[in-house]
Simulated assay, not measured.
Amino acid sequence: MLEVGPKYAWSLLAATFMNFQCTLAGVGAVNARTKYNIDAPDMGTGRQSAKLTDEEWEDLNRSVRVHMNYVEQLPTAISSVLICGLFYPTLSVCLGGSYILGRLIYGLGYRKEAKNREIGFVMYFVPLLGLMGASVVGITKELGLHRFNWA
């Protein structure tokens, strides 16, 4: 039976920081839409955006994509940090912190130029894979499936 100890609070903190960071990315998208006077529901691909220069359009869309990419990945990241934290709380917070740092670098790079997101992508995607992998290992051990001979 699983028991949640005080170390699990660190995984909860990592998940909370992920939520906060995603919200800040959303603020960045709203700020870009405000800067270019683009009203909802136009997200950079609608009729209002047609009045922008190519540079303005690209800047707006990079801001929106930073946020939307985070929204797309957030359920996987949060569920993985919380599941992993049940079994490996220290690993969970270390990988979760690495994910958060990678997301920060990804967002800052992407905002400047799309090609600048690559380092941040690797920095958040590798820890995400680690969180998912450790979650699977923890779950299979809890279920006793690691004792089976799968060959």
Rank of each mutant, 00 (worst) to 15 (best):
S80M: 10
W57V: 09
P41E: 10
L86S: 11
M18I: 09
M18K: 03
S98M: 14
L2H: 14
S135G: 15
F20G: 06
R33D: 02
R33L: 04
V27H: 11
W10T: 12
K35L: 13
W10C: 04
L82I: 00
L108E: 13
I100S: 00
V136L: 15
G130S: 12
V126D: 01
A151M: 15
Y124T: 05
A151W: 15
L13H: 01
M132F: 01
L95V: 06
G120E: 07
Y99N: 10
A29L: 03
S92W: 04
D54K: 09
L24M: 11
S49F: 10
D39P: 01
K141C: 05
L82S: 05
L52E: 07
I78Q: 14
L52D: 06
Y99M: 09
S80Y: 02
Q73W: 06
S11N: 08
C84S: 11
L2A: 10
G107D: 10
G138I: 12
L24T: 06
N19A: 15
K7W: 07
K115N: 12
E118F: 08
V93S: 06
A114W: 06
L60Q: 00
F87K: 13
E3C: 03
E55I: 02
N61C: 00
A32G: 11
L91D: 07
S92E: 08
P89W: 09
V81L: 07
R62G: 05
A14V: 08
N19M: 12
V122G: 00
R33V: 09
V27M: 11
G144K: 07
L24N: 05
E3Y: 03
E113G: 06
G130I: 03
D42P: 07
T34P: 04
W150M: 10
I38D: 04
R65Y: 03
V27C: 14
H146C: 08
P89N: 06
L104R: 00
G120W: 03
R65D: 03
V71A: 12
S92V: 07
V137W: 08
D42F: 04
N31H: 13
Y88C: 01
A29V: 04
S49C: 01
D59R: 08
G102R: 02
F125I: 05
D59A: 15
R47K: 07
F148G: 02
G28F: 09
A14R: 02
V27K: 15
I78Y: 05
R47L: 13
A29P: 06
S92R: 11
Y36G: 01
S63R: 02
N19F: 13
A114H: 04
T53C: 00
G109F: 06
G26F: 09
D59I: 06
W57C: 02
L12A: 11
E142Y: 11
W150R: 05
G44F: 08
P127M: 00
S79A: 14
A29R: 10
G138R: 14
Q48H: 02
R147Q: 13
R65A: 10
T16F: 11
E113T: 08
G96F: 02
G85R: 00
L52T: 13
R33E: 10
V27Y: 14
N149H: 12
